[in-house]
């Protein structure tokens, strides 16, 4: 866990995506000047490690962190799989005032995953592949996570490799299989509507995982939708300045 910014600043909790870590927000955090920013490595990820967990269990753990810090009325920002966690957190903890969904479609109906990903979902094969995944494969997935033409950069590649090493293989079936079913049954746009909290959705215009249909679906349930044309699936690293400006603007939205 890491906390940045002034103690009296408005609280923001940042939730990273599948296979990531709190370092995916290293570029964003310095740009959220004035905010109290809380980040954690999710269960099964980064320095937290431990067994894999689904979004609900992740949310319970994060709620525990917020409780121990005595924080409420937070803005919960979830990137990719972190969006599921942010919504669960908002639904169950009572500590969330606003939700920001970054680069996450309501469900997988409009999604494309890098070739070979399904292998990772097979229990044993997945674990083995994960263990021995060559650096170039990790790099290829990292490249898929940004807009075409965006250069992932040495820092980010190194980060992806480290995050991948730390990742618990049990996360693969949770995200790639169970999550598909959960999202089909209860897509995020429905959850945003039922939640009833102010929600902003930030999408990358060149997201290679998710198509462009999300924007209309989220808008239809009353969310504020912002599309960053040149960003891919990772606006938090590709266009951190734009994302930070949107979050700060959304925080003062009435």
């Amino acid at each position: 866990m890491r906390v940045d910014g002034p103690a009296e600043g408005p609280p923001v909790v940042l939730l990273h995506g599948f296979g990531g870590s709190l370092h995916w927000f290293d570029r964003l955090v310095p740009l959220l000047g004035g905010c109290r920013v809380i980040r954690v490595d999710l269960l099964g990820h980064g320095a937290t490690g431990g067994p894999a967990a689904d979004a609900d269990e992740q949310a319970r753990a994060v709620a525990g962190v917020l409780a121990s810090l005595g924080m409420s009325d937070v803005v919960a920002v979830g990137h990719s799989f972190g969006a599921d966690v942010a919504l669960s957190l908002a639904e169950t903890s009572g500590r969330v005032a606003r939700v920001v969904v970054v680069a996450q479609a309501p469900d997988y109906s409009d999604a494309t995953f890098p070739p070979g990903d399904f292998l990772m979902t097979l229990p044993l094969v997945g674990a083995l592949l994960h263990r021995f995944a060559p650096a170039f494969a990790v790099r290829a997935v990292a490249a898929h996570a940004v807009a075409p033409g965006f250069r992932v950069g040495a820092t980010l590649v190194q980060q992806s490799l480290e995050d991948h090493k730390a990742l618990d293989a049990g996360m693969f079936p949770i995200v790639l299989v169970q999550r598909r079913r959960r999202l089909a049954a209860n897509p995020l746009d429905t959850r945003v509507r039922e939640l009833g909290l102010p929600t902003m959705v930030v999408l990358g215009g060149q997201d290679r995982f998710y198509g462009a249909r999300s924007a209309r679906r989220y808008a239809a349930v009353g969310a504020r939708v912002e599309t960053i044309a040149e960003a891919g699936h990772s606006p938090v690293v590709e266009t951190p300045g734009r994302v930070a400006a949107l979050i700060q603007d959304f925080m003062t939205d009435t």
Binding site: L31, F150, R242
Partner: peptide
């Protein structure tokens, strides 16, 4: 910040 982001990106 925006300019460096652009020089490293788009």
């Amino acid at each position: 910040q925006a300019y460096v982001e652009w020089a490293a990106g788009g």
